[in-house]
Every structure is written in structure tokens, then in C-alpha cells.
Amino acid sequence: MTAHEVLPIDREFTPRLALRKRLGTLFGILSALAIIIGLTTLGLLIADVVRDGWHVLSWDFLTSYPSRRPEQAGIRSALVGTFYILILVAIIAFPLGVAAAIYLEEFAPRNRLTAIIEVNISNLAAVPSIVYGLLGVGVFVRTFMLGRSLIAGALTLSLLVLPIIIIASREALRAVPPSIREAGLALGASHWQTVRHFVLPAALPGILTGTILALARAIGETAPLITIGALTYVAFTPKSLFDPFTVLPIQIFNWISRPQAAFHERAAGGIIVLLAVLLLFNGLAIFLRARLQRRIRF
């Protein structure tokens, strides 16, 4: 650092405080405007979809298979496919994600390998979803010969949401105060017993919330499933893990890419259903967090 700069004594400092304060207020208005633009777009999007698709919603729409004739086309196979994918991804990704998070947060030694795993997970969380689709084609569809099946899709999406579950679970585990661990160890419990009986129950609300949000992400994914070759026109529901399938976003994409406006209305109807399912999930996450957190206080 050089010596203090000496201000010339004759240069007068004019505070112009009113102007500077007004600029600050102006900036506040600008930032409020930015938030309002975001919220307005969200409102417009929902209003547009509801306006386009409201009148196609009916029991028939939910229970009919897709059809060449738009007025008969429904989302039955897509809805069932989405439900199966959801269950499978939950079964596959939840235990793996939580286990990995427990290892990294509670047991991992601070060494090179751990550092590599951590960088790797944060990179995987930001890898484009379509790249997971290419992985799915190469590994699950071709090498494991699972074909364009339900299980291949579920495995691909599980890998996609795994980093999200790991990151959320680690945050939940980190939020458990060290004193809980120390108390467990002081009572003579082993390291694993402490984690299993003291830390994990305390972190569970956070872990479940993170998992539900990750599953919501899996439900909305389109690109990786298109890449592994999920069919866009499926007039049946899958009977086994190895059957072809479709999901809601793919059905919506299929209807959007057709030229007829009547199909676009069906797409809007499908979007309403998809958004309703996602809203349900987010609501569930918020409810669970509030409900379970009330029981545990530190």
C-alpha cells in the first residue's frame, strides 16, 4: 500500500445526500421490478396453460390412451408410466443417495479420494440431463441389453437425481449439531450407532424434503428419456419392468410437436396435470418439513 492519498484541502466535499439516497431508492425499485418480472412470467405461464387446456380436462382425458384423433386422445399410458418411474427412481436412488451422503458427511476421511468424490458430485449435479440420456443408451439400453424399457429409464433418471439427493442429504446431516454426536459417543455408542440412532433421525426431515424435490425433478425430465428411446406413442400400460413406456412430459412434447391446434390443447391439458402433480409434491415436501421439524428441536 502506498501512503494515504491527501485530498486537496480546497476541494470541497459535496454530500449530495438527497440525490444519493434517491438513487438507492431507485435501485430498490429496479430490483423489485426484476422480481416482479419473474413472478409475472410465472403467472402468465400458468394462466396461458390453464386457458388453453382447461376445457380438455375430464375423466376421459385421464383414462384414455393417446389417439390419432385429438378429441379422443388421453394421458392414461403417460400417467401410469410416470407413476412407475417415480416409484422405481425412489426405490433405487433414495437408499443410494442417503448412504453416500452419510459416508461423505460422517465417515469419509479428509483425503484426496474424498475430495475427488466431492468435486465429482458437484459436477454431476450440473451435467446436462441429455448427457445422462446418452449414458443410459450406452450402458443400460445397449450394454445391459435392457432395451427401451421402464427399468432402463428408471435407472437413467436415478443416476440423474442421485447427486441432488446426496447434496440435500448432506446439508440435512450437516445441520445436526455436533453435540448430538458427542452425546451419543459419550454414552458408549459406536460411531455407526450414533449416526444410525441419533444423527439420522434428526436429519430425516431435511433428507426426505430433498428426496421429494429430487423426485419432482425426475417426473419433469423429458430429454434423457427421449434419448434412451422412450416411445412417444404408447397405447398400452407397461406390464413388467422390461416393457416399453412413456411418461407425461414425453406425451406433452409429442402433442406440442404436432401441427394441429387441437393437439396443442391436449398438451396444455397434460401440462395442467403435470403441474398439479408437481404442486402436490412440493406441498408434501413443505408439509413434511414443517411437521417433522416440530418434533425435533435442538
Partner: peptide, 21 residues
Amino acid sequence: PILEILAGVPTVVYGYFALLF
């Protein structure tokens, strides 16, 4: 949280919005 709903909307829905609105 409301702003973050924007990040949770599936991208296929944004596609619909971009193309048809």
C-alpha cells in the same frame, strides 16, 4: 420460494410457453 417455483417448472412446459405464447 415462489421465485424458485420457476426453476421447478419442467422444461417441456417452458417449451410450450415459448412456442405458443
